[in-house]
Design a protein around this nucleic acid. Structure first.
Lengths: 336, 336
DNA sequence: CTGTTAGCGCATTCAG
DNA sequence: CTGAATGCGCTAACAG
């Protein structure tokens, strides 16, 4: 059916192995036959069967990207960066979405254990509180690079934003805009990004002499409706804040929805800042200040790091923790 | 190194083929040995080598998604839908980004010709004016389903939004808001979506007795800076419009950027409506009305259609053109 | 119900 | 410089 190396060999009156070598530009083949072979291959529109080749070489030229969701500008930008590097290296990119479900993450880690991919780029699900599935994957020899939502206990490279600093800057921005009581919307109790942003928040409160009791850390869930309910109670409760720092964009959206319903005016009655990667500030509601991560760059660096492992498999390169800076984008009337 | 079927067979004192069949739940294996085999497989953490299996079965359980870009909410939502269906069917999803470059599209089509995937979901690049690469792919037996940016001349299923109606609705919305001279920002001269939205635009002008000469169709390019220059000239020219219909979100962004620079007040001096899929209206600038496509649904339908081909490969099912409706989201002061 | 055998298409020994 | 032979890990006839 489809044209294979055997067919090429027959038409060229060469052996299969010669054709194989010619196609791979082996030094032991004469220039003239290389040309002959390649011309024939082009003429017959030959494309090597990737599965046969991978089976033989134990290398798939494929990497997996495991992320919690894709409808999130941070992750789509990161994929963009990953894919850019992958194209450069002639690799293929498989996408797996966990939808913040650890069971799915475990399932994917299992599926990736038998050579389907040469390496994995992963950003943990919010529900992941145990890393056995990834440890096992790593022990099978599959290199793993974490980005954004990383795992400290696993000796892998981590590419992140400086989340502590981002959290600090966000909180400071609200304080400098007159907020006295700032709530922190926490994404997850397990995530590295969550706790670091929280620490930044607490540090900023401390710097500005706001008492510990004035911190207001709000746990959220993986359910938007539930989150809106939580925020709604927060904003109608006795100790309602005058500023909110949302540690993820979807929490900011929940905030905005609640405020719309409760007729709370942002930013007059409530100032909001959020981690967010909508790089289209001109279309964004001018009342939202954001902390923006270098998502594209993170994707590129993560992929680059992974390829560093893949290229010198023998001499395992050292693990690296790369930390990039986020940017404060103060907007409209929230500005000083 | 990694545990394979042969190792299982040895430990169980069974033949390789029996193990293989047991794992695949073949009817010709006794329940007791199935259990024995599966327990051992679980104990040794066996995972079948996908490449060996694919090579043998000529089926990869993998599909490719080829899209122009991923930093675009329409496409990330669509991927979300595609991935949802793929997970249901236990398929893997490869992502390829053309960045609106036909050469890349041709390259991907070539790479996909030798069984790497069982089927392809594609949305054409803006530069694609020739379909030979896809015809060839199709002739090699790889089923193709188009979504959004489709190709009429290729006898494949097409899943789209009703772009004519969307264009009509958008234009009508501007007219009903008092616009007398409406410009249409055209995405590409080749794309199906582009020409259909344009036809909708023209039909709306006609319905409201606006003369043909009053149509203002602006060609744009694949370069944002260039587009801003084009729009800038449009807005400072002698026949400047009082309404703009952007056929893609990035064109609306360009518009907003230019207006900011030129100190043109949207929507007071200029009304803008755009095709866009930022499903976070509360965070969106309230001066932008949008035509929103059912992107997630399109992704699901496209994938479903593809699996229809994959599941009954023998009896080729008929091609289908599925057309979904878009939604007008009028916003803030652009409203009547 | 289970085992034996023969490839899938390719890369790589080992011989010439 | 080229060819013959082997096997990657798995599935699918074909036997029994």
């Amino acid at each position: 059916m489809s044209v294979n190396i055997k067919m090429l060999a027959e038409r060229l009156n060469l052996s299969i192995s010669t054709v194989s070598r010619a196609l791979r530009d082996s030094y032991e083949i004469s220039e003239s036959t290389k040309i002959r072979v390649k011309e024939m291959a082009a003429a017959l529109n030959y494309h090597a069967n990737p599965y046969a080749s991978s089976l033989r070489k134990h290398r798939s030229k494929t990497i997996a990207v495991v992320i919690p969701e894709i409808t999130n500008n941070f992750f789509s930008l990161a994929i963009n960066g990953i894919e850019y590097i992958a194209q450069e290296k002639n690799y293929h990119v498989l996408i797996y979405l966990t939808h913040e479900d650890i069971q799915k993450e475990i399932g994917f880690a299992g599926h990736l254990q038998n050579g389907r991919v040469d390496g994995v780029l992963i950003s943990l699900s919010a529900a992941t509180d145990n890393y056995d599935h990834l440890r096992e994957l790593k022990e099978k020899g599959v290199p793993i690079v974490f980005f954004d939502r990383v795992c400290d206990s696993l000796e892998c490279s981590n590419i992140t934003t400086d989340d502590f600093e981002g959290g600090f800057t966000a909180t400071e921005h609200l304080i400098q805009n007159g907020c006295k009581r700032i709530a922190y919307l926490d994404l997850s109790k397990h995530l590295s990004i969550s706790s670091k942003r929280k620490q930044g928040y607490l540090a900023a409160l401390k710097k500005y002499n706001m008492k510990e009791e004035e911190s207001l850390i709000i746990r959220t869930t993986n359910n938007n409706a539930e989150n809106e309910e939580i925020i709604s109670q927060l904003l109608t409760g006795p100790h309602k804040p005058d500023g909110i720092f949302a540690s993820a964009e979807k929490l900011a959206i929940a905030c905005y929805n609640v405020c719309e319903r409760l007729k709370i005016n942002i930013p007059r009655q409530l100032k909001v800042i959020s981690f967010s990667n909508l790089e289209i500030s001109s279309l964004l509601n001018p009342s939202l200040s954001t902390i923006t991560q270098p998502a594209y760059e993170i994707g590129k660096q993560a992929a680059t790091q992974l390829f560093r492992y893949l290229e010198k498999k023998s001499v395992t390169p050292a693990y690296e923790n790369i930390i990039l800076k986020s940017t404060l984008i103060p907007r409209g009337s929230t500005k000083k």
